[in-house]
């Protein structure tokens, strides 16, 4: 018990003094995860809309692939990305391995299927009725689409936040692709794993508290939007 309490007091001291290394790690984590979620959203929301809205050949296959990606362990995605960006990989000459950009790339692959499938579901669930009702009220096709987006915006935001929660908390991919290099690719999760195994329990705990605070904030925002939605 003493061990935990001592760790906790060390952690609080580190946080209270705004320890520069901790700040750096937290900022890098937030930067990397925000970038990957943003890229995944820019690609994923339109893709979700297209898959929900249009019928085309191969639609079933796309949905199956997305669902498979959704349940892939992060280390498997890490392995996949690693094989592409390592020296001998097809993208080796871009030198993305052990860089923040490499982690962003991997996390984008993790976040994308979440954004696509969740926003696809939100759109599919309500699209027909919203569009039909709008058209019956005299909307043009374009006005009906704008209304559809307004109506599903909170649901889509929920999809984006869920994706952010997944990438900020993942450790397998960041470790494999980023390498946990100090001051370069060390993120909250990889640092926690390392510091704790090194016996720097207080340091690990301080990072853990930050991560928990972020997770809590994410869930509060998510909860808020789900309340507003209904």
């Amino acid at each position: 018990m003493d061990y935990i309490l001592e760790g906790l007091s060390a952690a609080l001291r580190l946080l209270f003094n705004l320890n520069p290394e901790i700040r750096e790690i937290a900022l890098l984590s937030i930067m990397v995860s925000t970038s990957s979620t943003l890229i995944a959203s820019l690609l994923g929301i339109p893709l979700g809309f297209v898959v929900a809205h249009y019928d085309f050949q191969g639609k079933g296959i796309i949905i199956t692939i997305l669902n498979t990606l959704l349940s892939l362990p992060t280390v498997v995605v890490g392995l996949l990305v690693f094989s592409f960006i390592s020296n001998q990989g097809p993208l080796g000459n871009l030198e993305l391995l052990y860089t923040p950009l490499g982690i962003i790339m991997g996390q984008t692959i993790l976040a994308l299927p979440i954004v696509v499938t969740l926003s696809l579901n939100v759109i599919k669930e309500s699209e027909d009725k919203i569009i039909d009702t709008a058209l019956s009220l005299g909307a043009s096709k374009k006005q009906a689409m704008i209304l559809l987006f307004k109506e599903v915006r909170f649901g889509i935001l929920g999809a984006v936040i869920t994706a952010y929660g997944r990438v900020i908390g993942e450790v397998g991919l960041s470790m494999m692709v980023g390498g946990n290099i100090r001051r370069v690719t060390r993120t909250l999760t990889t640092a926690i794993a390392m510091e704790t195994s090194k016996g720097e329990f207080g340091f690990g705990l301080a990072l853990g508290i930050i991560l928990m605070t972020i997770a809590l904030a994410i869930n509060l925002v998510l909860h808020y939007f789900q309340e507003v939605r209904t």
């Binding site: 009725k129 919203i130 009702t133 019956s136 009220l137 209304l147 307004k150 109506e151 507003v228 939605r229």
Partner: peptide, 11 residues
């Protein structure tokens, strides 16, 4: 004008 069996009002 169209009045639906199941109304859908917007948020």
């Amino acid at each position: 004008g169209f009045i639906w069996q199941k109304t859908l009002l917007y948020n």
